[in-house]
Simulated assay, not measured.
Amino acid sequence: MARTSRRTVSKPTRKPLTKDMLLPLPVARVRALSLENHLFLAAIRGGHGSMEVAMNLLRVLYLSWFMRDAADAERDLDVFREAEAVLARGRIRAHQHQGWTLPEEDHRVLEHILALHDQQLASMPSHRYIVAWERLQRFLRSDDWSPIGPGGPDEDEEQKC
């Protein structure tokens, strides 16, 4: 009986993770990112907000969204939606020539997101940050309004200002 050769179809292999990618980001990098992020919120609180500041806070929000653990996905959903709504209301106020300001309760919502993101940066493997950054870039190139999904801020936010 003749022996037939069996060809195997190989699956595309994922590049193996390096030791550095399995470790959290370096402490100095985490501190620098955290300081930068908190300065954006302080700028708004101090009356120095701008579109650039708001966009950086939105970047932090979405990175944190992409870095969240699957176990926390449902629990944190409302916090992320509310933070997105806070930034939408800030944009609307600025558009209405009220300046880039936020009420104190909105500051607390964004402080919560910044604290969560600080925790993520300090504890998660570096590759999770890289994957989140890549997902953010894909989202920015898409036509989607929000990566957070249904239930995010809507057109009625104008009435809450």
Rank of each mutant, 00 (worst) to 15 (best):
V27Y: 10
V60P: 02
T101D: 01
L121Q: 04
M51P: 10
S126M: 14
A94H: 03
L57W: 00
E52L: 13
E74Y: 08
R75E: 06
M124T: 13
E104N: 11
R89I: 05
R68Y: 08
A83Y: 00
P26Q: 09
A85K: 08
Q137Y: 01
P125I: 03
V53F: 04
H48M: 14
V60D: 05
L116S: 11
P103A: 10
E52M: 07
W65A: 02
V60F: 01
V131D: 13
Q120S: 09
V53M: 08
A88V: 03
I130F: 08
H95M: 11
E105V: 05
R91C: 09
D20N: 08
E52C: 08
A83E: 03
D78H: 06
I113C: 01
G49W: 02
I130E: 10
L110A: 04
Y62K: 10
D118E: 11
D72C: 08
L102C: 04
T101P: 02
R93Q: 06
A54N: 13
L136E: 07
H107F: 05
L41A: 01
I130Y: 11
R135P: 08
A43R: 15
H117G: 02
R93D: 06
G99E: 10
K15A: 10
L41S: 01
V30M: 02
M124P: 00
H127E: 10
L63T: 04
L61Q: 01
I44D: 02
H48F: 15
A42G: 13
E74F: 04
R29Y: 12
F80I: 06
H97V: 14
R135C: 11
A94S: 09
L61P: 00
I113K: 00
G90R: 01
D76N: 12
P16D: 05
A88E: 05
P16K: 08
